[in-house]
Design a protein around this nucleic acid. Structure first.
Lengths: 353, 353
DNA sequence: GCGAATTGATAAATCGTTTTAGTAAATCGT
DNA sequence: ACGATTTACTAAAACGATTTATCAATTCGC
């Protein structure tokens, strides 16, 4: 009521004055913490509190800059509004894009997330999972990560391919992706197609390879051993695609198109082809996968199979939130599939005769 | 050792059996929670507890899979081992790289971080800062974000340029960067140099522009109004560089080299130049900034001024950890500077006569 | 053999909330 | 006018740890 205290509070407001507790605020108002809690949280039983008192409470809370302590509240209500997100590493663009989607979905609901990178180390992965659980996350999103044992929480695996009890896999419709890719190359007249197979640790590697080979065979195209090469090494750089394409070329197989494992390796492949005196797309068409940020601005601009990574991230997050909010066990789905799209740019062209 | 029991245990381990509390564990051992706490945390006063009892406790904790509740512990000891990281958005590669460094430094110390994107919205930025403080983060790292009021916590601003009490800025040595860039172009014989100035919202925009102009003038090169153009729009895509370069070309200024604001805009610029029938680097040299992931694999590979983003992230994190651990107030430094390096690739070449 | 120190433990306060179960006074219905 | 509601508010018990006193029984020093 007096001027002095108010001024002091205001001048400190910028510096966000040391937090005040509910108890202190209650003492200041000469009310019990209970009353304040009921009013501030708009609890049903607060109907009996007169508006005048409520106003006093709101005013004081604002003036004294009361901010409820999240730890205390979380401990009491047993909810942290926090998820854990496990990625192989952050630098590769793929994970960042998924995270972006995760964040968009979570922020709407006042959730946050803790990020952890396992760097392709199995032991670290297991340890991080445990630590996240200890930190009371309400669910876990694993991105492109082969989880083994799922903790007792809602878990969604983005690009996961193992069937694990209680884990929802958010996956691309790989069959469709392979059809789109091979179909595009076939339509351009390509009949000799090479493939860059993913690294062994990537969860998409096997499905992608198999579906592509199948789609090709359906059109009478055989992918013999000389026509594919596997990416090796953990670096998320085009180097690995460059190296794999070199060995492919050294192997002597003849091809007019190359279906890369992803955009990053496609970029490396283009460089290797150029180094060998082959022009893209005049001599060899190159097809990427993912449509990462930058694929459109590569030179030549990459034709690629687009994975909706942002959507996969937000779908993963939404799925977990949904499971948390609906008490019904029935909400659980073992698999959610999203559709790829073909993005035609400049790295593919009709096959030369 | 028989197969059966092991299988059963394992099968439960997968589901990570419902957490047990300290009190329950204590009841099971017929000891008090106090004793367990002292032993498990290896408190000094635990010396009087005989090894036999300690062993019993450790064994039971392991067998019953006791995991201390982080919330409860944090509430009591008033430490969360969590930082908040505020970025403009995640998709731009720049932030992801910094985050990567942050994570590397934090994980060593058992810290985690919550990520929040403000999407260039001032109100959101302010709100997110408050929410992070409510969540009891122990410090905040802002990346390329113009913070106004710093909360009452250790704050480090990566690429921050305002002087704010209590905020440490981690910045690139811009003077040096400008010298490296202009020096490189000058040495190649360029005397007419155009500049792409950053978006108004980016904290590096003004310094970078000014230092570049100064470095040029020091060598007798004037950058008149027709020779620079400002990026506009929030999209983190090369589009903005493409558009800015178009207007530059339309303005009629003559130049043999272009110093872009960053790699992303450099990529857009190269496309605009090509569209105008100019070859890079034969007709125009293009110099990027940042050395983002992918700069090396662009075609032509970008010559660029490398910012050590990973290091800036880990330096920011280390700085905060340091301030948290040392009780001395003296640790505070208002500014930490890191050095750029020139990475010469294929987008710059001697000036044509 | 007696006070002091050591050994082996524990009860209770605390962190800052939410929530359950009240209570005392005023008002209502009849 | 009197029991039943309603109004206005609160005490105390959680949540799950850590930490500060204490305590009872031994052992030690002399």
């Amino acid at each position: 009521m007096t001027r002095r205290p108010k001024d002091i509070v205001d001048s400190k407001a910028n510096k966000s004055v040391a937090a005040i507790s509910l108890k202190q605020l209650a003492a200041h108002l000469e009310l019990s913490p209970t009353t304040l809690s009921l009013v501030l949280n708009d609890a049903p039983s607060a109907i009996s509190i007169p508006q005048e008192t409520k106003d006093r409470i709101f005013l004081a809370a604002k003036e004294l800059n009361y901010r409820p302590n999240y730890l205390a509240r979380s401990l009491r209500v047993q909810r942290t509004h926090t998820l854990g997100v496990i990625v192989p590493e952050l630098s590769d663009g793929y994970s960042a894009m998924v995270l972006n989607g995760v964040e968009a979905a979570l922020s709407k609901e006042g959730f946050f997330y803790l990020t952890a990178s396992h760097l392709h180390r199995e032991d670290l992965l297991q340890k991080l999972t445990n630590v996240l659980v200890e930190r009371q996350v309400e669910g876990i999103i694993a991105v492109d990560t082969p989880i083994r044992y799922a903790p007792n929480l809602p878990v969604v695996n983005v690009s996961g391919h193992q069937e694990i009890e209680g884990v929802t896999n958010v996956i691309l419709n790989h069959q469709h992706a392979a059809e789109l890719g091979i179909g595009h190359l076939f339509d351009l007249g390509h009949r000799s197609i090479a493939i860059l197979k993913g690294q062994a640790f990537s969860s998409d590697t096997e499905v992608r390879f198999d579906t592509i080979v199948n789609a090709a065979e359906k059109r009478g195209i055989k992918i013999d051993r000389k026509l594919w090469s596997q990416l090796e090494g953990e670096s998320p750089s085009p180097e690995v695609g460059y190296a794999a394409t070199k060995t492919l070329l050294a192997g002597g197989g003849k091809f007019t198109a190359l279906f890369a494992f992803n955009d990053v390796s496609a970029i490396g492949a283009i460089r290797a082809l150029n180094d060998a005196g082959l022009r893209v797309p005049a001599d060899v068409s190159v097809l990427g996968f993912d449509d990462i940020y930058g694929a459109a601005f590569h030179n030549p601009a990459l034709t690629t199979i687009r994975q909706p990574l942002f959507e996969m991230g937000s779908l993963a997050a939404a799925t977990i939130l949904n499971r948390l909010n609906s008490s019904m066990e029935s909400e659980f789905l073992p698999e959610l599939s999203v559709e790829p799209t073909l993005v035609v740019r400049k790295s593919t062209a009709p096959a030369a005769l």
